[in-house]
Design a protein around this nucleic acid. Sequence first.
DNA 1: CCCTGATTCGC
DNA 2: GCGAATCAGG
Length: 130
Amino acid sequence: MSDNAPSVWTEERLSDLTRLWGEGLSITQIGLALGVSRNAVVGKVHRMGLPKRQSPIVKSDKPRAPKAPIQRRRAVPLTLEQWDRNTCSWPIGDPKTDNFSFCGETVEPGRPYCTAHCAKAYTTSRENAA
DNA sequence: CCCTGATTCGC
DNA sequence: GCGAATCAGG
């Protein structure tokens, strides 16, 4: 074990990479097949100069956002620390009681609430109207 | 939200 | 050069 000082990408893996890539597999699939992250796959592919297939994104005029000082959304200065972008904030119980809490369920894409509560919020209030 | 890939930056 | 992080579009 001394003549082995290859980079992470050996001919073997490069072979699989190129082969799978040529087969039309996606970066994620190849990454899983080789046991590497998809970034590693696309990174290597890009570096090798292999023919990329899709370009869903177009080169924008934006000079890429500064990664370090990524400004966070300064909103909701409430005690909602566990606030995620997909957390349903549907009120559970009574806001004036101590057992008041939020749904916490994963919200639907583009919806402020989860599937169940989204239906409630966007209902025609017809059947709900009692 | 999921997925896709591209590009840039840090190590 | 490699990998992660980020951005961008469907």
